[in-house]
Simulated assay, not measured.
Amino acid sequence: MEQDCLIHPSAIVHPQAQLDSTVRVGPYAVVGPKLRIGAQTTVGPHCVLEGDTEIGCHNQIFQFASLGAQPQDKKYAGEPTQLIIGDRNTIREFCTFNTGTVQDGGVTRIGNDNWIMAYVHIAHDCVVGHNTILANNATLAGHVHVGDWVILGGLTGVHQFTRIGAHAMAGFASHISQDVPPFMMVDGNPLAVRGFNIEGLRRRGFGEQRLRAVKQMHRLLYRQGLTLEAARAAIAALAAELPEAAADVQAMLDFLAASQRGIAR
């Protein structure tokens, strides 16, 4: 551990922890021996950082967060598993992120530039992409995958092993127990697909051809009464019709092919 870290005298930082010299650690925080924390990251008062945990650069971790605790899984028997957090994330008060389990890849992983609000729980073996927004009390059960640019409304619960595709959006207090395809907007309990995330896509620079492709994919999946196999075949044909959207079409096809829980329909 660098001796010139900006550590409050009341904080308890294990001498084996590896902190960049620019890391700030607030009053009464506890940092365990297997922590690696990158440059310009701030750890707020009363945080507990433990386990085999790697935290990147320029993260802001607010007071009372608990990161790297062992998974809440009865099968866990002390195996070495990890939590890996990327760069430039905002992690608000009382968040709880657990390490992974050997029943999966052994790693819980959070990407870059995520805005994670108070009381969010990210359970073992979850994978969260980049540029997401998880509002207050959003809860991810084990093995959940959340794609880039996803927005989850407050009090949303996500069932274990569920996948949420890139650019999807879930409204307040949604109950997500089936996979949510990319670009879609969902809410409710039971969950319903309400449309596609057109405003979010426009803000991210989607042009008219890409928006047209997403609109057509929504229609094929949800408005024309097609079977899933028929919808997939029709979606595949869009790549030739709308070449600027070929990558978006492929992302949808890949997501549908990988779905194991079935998609919300």
Rank of each mutant, 00 (worst) to 15 (best):
H167C: 13
L152D: 03
L83M: 10
M169F: 14
P71H: 05
G154D: 02
D52N: 09
R24D: 02
E79P: 00
V128W: 12
D52M: 10
A29I: 03
G44P: 07
R36W: 07
K75H: 02
T162S: 08
G147K: 11
G105R: 15
Q160H: 13
V48M: 14
Q82P: 00
E54M: 11
C95S: 11
I61R: 10
F94K: 05
A166G: 08
A29T: 02
N89F: 13
E50T: 10
Q72W: 03
V127Q: 14
G165S: 07
C47R: 10
T139W: 13
F161C: 08
P33G: 01
V31P: 01
H124M: 02
V25D: 07
G51K: 06
H121A: 08
V48P: 02
I164E: 01
L134Y: 00
E79W: 01
V25I: 11
R88I: 03
V127M: 04
F172K: 05
V30N: 08
P27A: 15
G38D: 05
D113F: 12
A29Y: 04
D52R: 10
V30D: 06
G106F: 01
R88H: 11
L67C: 09
V120K: 14
I122Q: 02
G165L: 05
H167S: 10
R109L: 02
Y119W: 15
G32W: 07
S66R: 09
H145S: 12
H130I: 05
N89I: 07
V127K: 08
A77G: 12
K74F: 14
E50H: 03
G142R: 09
Y119I: 04
V146K: 03
L49H: 04
Q103C: 00
I84C: 07
L134M: 12
F97Q: 10
Q40A: 12
T139K: 07
C95A: 08
V25G: 05
N112V: 04
T96D: 01
R92W: 05
M169N: 04
V146T: 06
H145L: 06
G100M: 12
G111N: 05
G51E: 04
